[in-house]
Simulated scan of single mutants.
Amino acid sequence: MNPLHKHTPLAKAILEILSEISNIAEDKYGELPSGTIRAFIFGGCAVHIYTNARGSNDLDVELEASRRLDINELIVELDDADYDDEDGTHRTLSFDNTFNPAIPDLHPDWRDDAILIQSGEAVMHIYLVSAVDIAISKLGRCTSHDVNDIVSLYVAERFSIEDFTKRACEALYYSPTPDRLRCNIAYATQVLKSL
């Protein structure tokens, strides 16, 4: 498998925001055990870590706390991360507090198949949602931007067409709009096969 792009300026900004959430949690609740918070990276930031193909100005993350932590209380104090991109352009990354993983179509096993990218003694363990599940999450809207993300992940050899169609068809059983999702799967698959 190709290495992940975890050391780009954007990837460092992602980790900076997630580290700040850990720091805020410990400031509020005291010393916390390793893995008290789990973060699952979605959206354009996940596409970037897999492909380095594009950036994002918002961080879509699902946060889960294993203790009685009020996640909303933590993110209200969160600052944006400022960084300079590879081309020297100044950028800002913001935490998207409106992101909800229940909205995009997803396979029910997406958590189990996420890639652990930071753990150890850290309060927050960070996971990257699998590339095929990121692609499936893009099928709900299926705009040209979303299709470009699916293509970028495929071209970066993060999944095969067979893996994509199998996983997407399994997600159909859990979709509130299976007819729309079925059409979008067919369209995205056709685009991938035409490459």
Rank of each mutant, 00 (worst) to 15 (best):
D133H: 13
S130N: 11
E121C: 00
V123W: 04
N97W: 04
G44V: 10
A122Y: 10
E16K: 10
S94I: 08
E64H: 10
E64D: 12
S22L: 02
N57K: 09
I71H: 06
S144L: 14
V147H: 05
D80I: 11
K28V: 11
T98V: 04
S19H: 10
R91A: 07
D133T: 05
T92V: 12
L106R: 14
P101M: 10
T143S: 15
A25Y: 05
N100E: 15
A65E: 09
L153S: 12
E31H: 09
K12C: 01
A39S: 15
E16A: 11
M124A: 12
A114Q: 06
I21N: 02
G43R: 10
H48D: 15
L18G: 06
C45L: 02
N23M: 11
R141Y: 06
S22V: 08
W110C: 04
R68A: 09
L15F: 15
I41Y: 00
D82W: 06
A131C: 06
L32R: 02
V155P: 01
L78W: 03
R54N: 11
D87E: 15
A156P: 02
A46T: 13
S66Y: 15
A65W: 08
T143E: 15
G55T: 15
Y29Q: 12
N23Y: 07
S94L: 07
S56V: 10
S137Q: 08
D109C: 02
Y154L: 03
N52R: 12
D113N: 14
S137L: 01
D85R: 05
F99K: 09
I136F: 03
S152W: 11
E26W: 05
A102G: 14
E64F: 01
Y83L: 02
H90D: 14
S34A: 15
L93T: 10
G35E: 06
F42S: 01
D149N: 14
E121S: 12
Y29C: 08
I24S: 08
T89D: 14
L116E: 15
Y127I: 04
I21W: 00
N52F: 08
W110R: 02
T89P: 02
D149R: 07
F40G: 00
D133F: 00
I103F: 13
N97M: 12
S19I: 06
I126R: 00
E20C: 04
I14E: 08
P33W: 01
L128K: 02
V155G: 00
S130W: 03
I126D: 07
A114Y: 00
D60I: 01
D80E: 15
K28W: 01
I126N: 05
C45F: 00
K28A: 12
R67S: 10
L78N: 05
V47C: 11
D80A: 11
E86V: 14
A135N: 05
E77W: 09
W110Y: 15
E16H: 13
A25F: 01
H48K: 05
A135F: 07
E157H: 09
V151D: 12
I136P: 03
I71Q: 07
E31L: 03
N148K: 13
G44Q: 04
D105H: 09
R141D: 07
L59I: 12
R54P: 02
R91D: 11
N148D: 15
L139F: 05
T51R: 04
G30W: 02
E77N: 12
N72A: 05
Y29G: 03
T98P: 00
D87I: 06
D109W: 05
L32C: 06
